[in-house]
Design a protein around this nucleic acid. Structure first.
Lengths: 121, 121
DNA sequence: ATGGAAATGAAAATCATTTTCATTTCTGCT
DNA sequence: AGCAGAAATGAAAATGATTTTCATTTCCAT
């Protein structure tokens, strides 16, 4: 078993606690970190096993890693220029919770993203 | 633009209305249908465009296609067995709309999925 | 210092999905 | 019927994320 490389977790945090393995890798490269893609994957997997990060899926199926426990937020993304705004989702949290309870689900998480065209585009 | 090959839809129905592209393809092969994998993919994409089937994701990121009603809804998915419940998202619709307006976004859409462990697992 | 375990990463393998492109099948039209 | 252009098809190659392999390096306890 491999343990997580601490620089990976720290980079994920710096990325806003929400990124894919490839993004974490590229970010570390840009910052001059000497690390292989394989290690990034292994570290993220290990963090998921330890329940330190959540594993979610983008719409295209790419895995995205999100820090657990952290007060999480949602995104409002411009389909045209990619600008992203972090938004609060209080209503969503309640909705997810009540829906899950209603159907007897436990260990519940959720994803919610809003996308559209921003005022500049 | 290619239109959906009707045999693909009929196979998806026969598969219980819930299968991946690869599964639909293998099923058709076993039944002696002469069809290429490419056409299966194209047909399923087209069915998604026409909102005749829903596109969701397995835990491993593989796309699964699922016949579903035409009303807008969200999903509650079991991470363990894959059971899926269609749920209403009235609160989400309002949230997405108000968040988008607040930040000047237009042509807005959204995704929202809840995942957890169902009562049977 | 030393031996074994754990970590690392480059390259190859895997696997779903998409793209390319040449061929075949339809279509409408004369 | 015959013909041209459009649409559909599928085999093979390309893509892209993720995993595996395996040889090398780093750690750690002795």
């Amino acid at each position: 078993m491999s343990r997580s490389n601490p620089r990976v977790l720290s980079t994920l945090e710096r990325a806003g606690g929400f990124a894919s393995a490839q993004e974490v890798y590229k970010l570390m490269q840009r910052e001059g970190e000497k690390i292989g893609l394989t290690t990034v994957y292994r570290s993220l997997q290990s963090l998921v096993n330890d329940k330190i990060v959540d594993l979610l899926r983008r719409e295209d199926g790419e895995a995205i890693y999100r820090l657990c426990g952290e007060h999480h937020h949602h995104h409002l993304v411009c389909k045209s220029c990619g600008e992203t705004v972090e938004i609060e989702g209080g209503a969503i949290e309640k909705w997810a919770k009540s829906m899950a309870e209603e159907h007897g689900f436990r260990d519940v998480g959720h994803t919610a993203e809003i996308f559209g065209i921003c005022s500049k585009c």
